[in-house]
Amino acid sequence: MLAVHDLEVRIAGKPILKGIDLEVGSGEVHAIMGPNASGKSTLAHVLAGREGYEVTAGGVTFDGEDLLALSPEERAHRGVFLAFQYPVAIPGVNNAYFLKAALNAGRKYRGLAELDAIEFLNLVKEKLKLVHLDEALLKRAVNEGFSGGEKKRNEVFQMAVLEPRLAILDETDSGLDIDALKLVAEGVNRLRDGQRSFVVVTHYQRLLSYVVPDRVHVLSGGRIVRSGGRELALDLDAHGYDWVKVAAA
């Protein structure tokens, strides 16, 4: 489904990703772990199509199509979703209005009829329960005045509504207590249907006890320095990142 090969990315001339290879098959869950500033969010942003990144080598395909040639909205239409590490607050844009526009844009792309306000509300009320978010949140501006946890759950809520084919979760578990973490995990697990794929960026193995990954990769200094099964996450948890860095050197 997703194939990243030898991806090199610079920000303002400075190399950040230094040759990433990553294959995520249909229905798979891949975890990406690694120390701060290793390039995890950069990879997530490049996959979602954010501006300001210069791809100097390599490429990305999604179902065989050149992903990097597509605009962010085209990527979303193909089924790519990014749960942001730091979701931006958008004052004045109503959360429900925004999500309805997003959902209907995707439906339009797939040739489906757009949902009207009532149909939309029936759908989202179900999904809100999933992440234990209050309906009042729909009436608020996107992420404005949301607590850290609410922002993260709002990302999972959007994912549940948009039902992407590939969801990239960028530290969605950071700063969450165990109950909120379980909700995030449940949001992911409910979407797992053997077809949808997930790239879960996390610092801690604790999320991975609820969302069991098929593969774990360690990103350090802009390179994937180690890949393995889920037991790699446990090793990292026990020994920290130093030993992988040493191993990579």
Binding site: P72, E73, I90, P91, V93, F98, A101, A105
Partner: peptide
């Protein structure tokens, strides 16, 4: 904010209109 809206599938001109409307 524009990127956030577009990353959810909203066309860029619509995203600009939504932010302007806000």
């Amino acid at each position: 904010a524009l990127f956030y809206l577009c990353s959810r599938g909203i066309e860029a001109p619509v995203a600009r209109a939504i932010l302007t409307q806000a």
